[in-house]
């Protein structure tokens, strides 16, 4: 037995690696590797073969058409009809929070702004929207966790451990955040004589630094850790956050990434 590179019975229309790259389009490949955002969705319509012509539903043949589309459309909303996937739906009009009051929204936006520093406005907005959705979902998640049937709960405990299951069933993130935000305002008034939003930027940063040193199990500490954790998740899953990380995945590589390609 030996390694196969080409076999005699390979079909004549087999694609060579080079042909495949050429057909996909050099720009797409380069753009993907470089992490750029090409406006090439319309150009990426080459199809290796007619998709699954004559095949029963559910069978398919390789196609670059959709691949090219999604590669090129990394900044565009994608909502295939009837998809079971929860795609983000583009927002029309100003952001309407699902959980935060307007005042809370303003405070959290500023607080997260301090946490993240100078970031892209859209990424910050997405991060706040994620925090809001995460908190709005909290009640339903907890309810679902508490109403798992006994066997599913037993399985979850076997898989995650008792502590994580109990946490999912009992931790009220909404209350943690609401309580914590009030305590933050209280600390702001005690320390600087006014509420958080009325403070100068340096004072806001000083206050956040103080809060960051609060014991993590305290009410204020729990709020801070929750907001910081979800802000990190929200920001670094934004397009700007991923570009900032210089993430070099989810793309088209012409060769297998390995140690030789470590430096990109």
């Amino acid at each position: 037995m030996s390694e196969i590179r080409r076999t005699p019975d390979d079909s004549d229309d087999d694609l060579t690696r080079r042909a495949w790259l050429l057909r996909l389009g050099e720009l797409t490949a380069l753009a993907g590797v470089a992490g750029l955002v090409p406006d090439l969705a319309g150009a990426m319509t080459l199809t290796v073969r007619e998709a699954a012509a004559g095949l029963p539903p559910g069978l398919y043949e390789p196609s670059t058409e959709h691949l090219g589309h999604v590669l090129a459309a990394r900044d565009a909303p994608l909502v295939p009809r009837d998809a079971e996937t929860d795609f983000a739906v583009p927002r029309r009009g100003p952001f309407q929070p699902l959980f935060f009051s307007q005042h809370e929204l303003d405070v959290v936006t500023r607080l997260v702004g301090v946490l993240l520093g100078s970031v892209d406005a859209r990424a910050l907005s997405e991060t706040i929207a994620w925090l809001d959705l995460r908190l709005q979902s909290d009640v339903g998640i907890r309810r679902a966790a508490r109403t798992l049937n006994p066997s599913h709960r037993a399985l979850a405990i076997a898989y995650y451990g008792q502590a994580r299951v109990t946490e999912l069933e009992t931790v009220d993130s909404q209350a943690i955040v609401r309580t914590g935000l009030k305590l933050m305002e209280q600390q702001s008034r005690e320390r600087f004589g006014r509420e958080f939003l009325g403070l100068a930027g340096t004072a806001q940063t000083d206050l956040v630094r103080e809060i960051s040193r609060t014991p993590p199990e305290s009410p204020l500490g729990r709020c801070y850790l929750f907001l910081r954790r979800e802000a990190i998740r929200g920001y670094f899953t934004s397009r700007a956050g991923l570009i900032e990380l210089d993430y070099k995945g989810n793309t088209f590589h012409g060769a297998c990434p390995g140690c030789d390609s470590r430096r990109g």
Partner: peptide, 13 residues
Amino acid sequence: RDFTEHIWPYQLK
């Protein structure tokens, strides 16, 4: 419709 290859996290709700 069903494949989500190359979808980015920010493209999901």
